[in-house]
Nucleic acid binder design. Structure first.
Length: 415
RNA sequence: GGAGGGGUGCCCGAGCGGUCAAAGGGAGCGGACUGUAAAUCCGCCGGCGUACGCCUACGCAGGUUCGAAUCCUGCCCCCUCCA
């Protein structure tokens, strides 16, 4: 068997280089990568995972799909679960200390993580290692020896340290250590290549220096752009709430993809469905000229992306459902049930504010009142704006709040 | 160790004894317009069952005062400069 074949088609090292680096922002360096490929042995490709946030989103998927190319070419993906750092608790983010994770939590998160990564990579062919394996045994002298290999000045060059210092925001000592920790991982797994988002460039480059300091051949570093989130401005991240999770149900994934600003389309087409640059350029022209409706491009793209994670059929359904609910303003075919206890009804009626909060469509009565006053709440398409309204409900009635919150009421016998 | 600056709502930021649930901006939410796009416009934006009422809130804990985000004391935390 050949290490350099895709579906049986042999590739020369030069062709591999071409495939593997397509769309990359940084490759440090192409020459070194080519050299490694020429040796004809499977390369070890490192990818670091944070065990505190096991929710994979499309932003993560960008480097992961590139790892998939490596895997298809017979190379070995090495996943490092950063449980050591996760257990210490990273005080960065300046507002609150991240919670420390117990060993069980880390394991559970890692398992979730692996399951999600499995949607993109063949996980059975990946090596999964925990960095606590070596760090929990490293004594203070080992850490000091590692720290001695790097200088403060070089560490402070890092963009976000510089920015935070400038903004008078705190930078904890351990944060300076993080790049070293990550770099040492590269030493321990004997990485040939490390890939990540452009925000990881600095850390990964430190990896090269540290590997040299430990007399190893430095890893090749490759970065891909950070995907911008659904808000159209910030990078996709869970904490900003602008993310599309790979485990989002088809309908939700589809809807989120449809709601991205048009300006994001070229980037999404390139990074998520790997549309060739010429095609993207052509589409942009057509859109500018009004020859195609961006909505249709989005629909096509959303279908392709949903299909990657949920299959063709689910993708097709999501598209049709979307059209039905949002274009034609019909009711969704599937709505969550709102259970109302008969005991909550007074002669068949319930306070609308209460109904809204019970349904989970508003976090507080005050919020529910606001929504009602603003005309966002309807029952069976009847908008009700009286916040004091007592409404009659029967099983089967549909409560709607805003554009996208729907529920079908079920009256349960109760005390 | 010394000197100085600062901690306000999800974020930024004004307020510096009453008229403060706290200006302004951002984010978010709702409505209009649409393609669940962008832009724009209007409205909302701590909680409490129906309330010119009550509770919670301006780092934490006390105090002064009829009354404190605003003054005083102690503590915690951040930043800058010097050592």
């Amino acid at each position: 068997m050949s290490v350099s074949s895709v579906r049986g088609v042999a590739m020369t090292p030069e062709q591999q280089l071409e495939t593997l680096t397509r769309g990359a922002v940084d490759v440090v360096s192409r020459e070194e990568l080519l050299e490694k490929l020429r040796r004809g042995k499977p390369l070890r490709i490192k990818y670091g995972a944070d065990p505190s946030a096991p929710d994979l989103h499309l932003g993560h998927s960008v480097p992961l799909w590139r790892l998939r190319r490596f895997q298809d070419l017979g190379h070995t993906i090495v996943f490092i679960i950063g449980d050591f750092t996760g257990r210490i608790g990273d005080p960065s983010g300046r507002s609150r200390t991240r919670p420390m994770l117990s060993e069980e939590e880390v394991r559970a998160n890692a398992a979730t993580y692996a399951a999600q990564v499995g949607k993109i990579l063949d996980i059975s062919r990946c090596e999964i290692v925990y960095n606590s394996q070596w760090f929990s045994e490293m004594a203070a002298d080992g850490l000091l020896r590692l720290a001695a290999r790097y200088t403060v000045a070089r560490m402070l060059e890092r963009d976000d340290f510089a920015k935070r210092m400038g903004a008078e925001a705190p930078v904890a000592i351990v944060e300076l250590l993080y790049p070293l920790i990550q770099a040492y991982d590269s030493v321990m797994v004997r990485a040939d290549v490390e890939v990540g988002g452009t925000d990881q460039l600095f850390n990964m480059l430190v990896g090269r220096d540290i590997m040299r300091a430990y007399d190893m051949e430095p890893q090749v570093v490759m970065t891909w752009p950070l995907l911008v989130g659904t808000d159209g401005h910030e990078k996709m991240s869970k904490s900003l709430g602008n993310y599309i999770g790979v485990t989002d149900p088809p309908g939700e994934m589809f809807g989120k993809l449809m709601s991205i600003p048009d300006a994001l389309l070229p980037q999404y087409l390139e990074l998520l469905v790997e549309m060739p640059a010429e095609e993207i350029a052509q589409l942009q022209q057509d859109m500018a000229a009004g020859a195609v409706n961006p909505r249709d491009i989005k629909d096509e793209m959303a279908r392709r992306i949903v299909a990657l994670y949920h299959g063709e059929e689910a993708a097709q359904q999501a598209s049709e459902e979307f059209r039905r609910v949002f274009s034609q303003r019909e009711l969704p075919s599937d709505m969550p049930e709102i259970a109302v206890s008969a005991g909550d009804l007074v002669s068949g009626k319930i306070w609308l504010v209460r109904l809204t909060t019970v349904a989970g469509f508003a976090p507080s009565n005050s919020e529910a009142r606001r929504l009602i006053r603003q005309g966002a709440v309807s029952i069976n398409d009847q908008i009700i704006t009286d916040e004091n309204a007592e409404v009659e409900v029967r099983t089967g009635d549909v409560l709607r709040v805003g554009k996208r919150r729907f529920g079908r009421i079920t009256v349960k016998p109760g005390d």
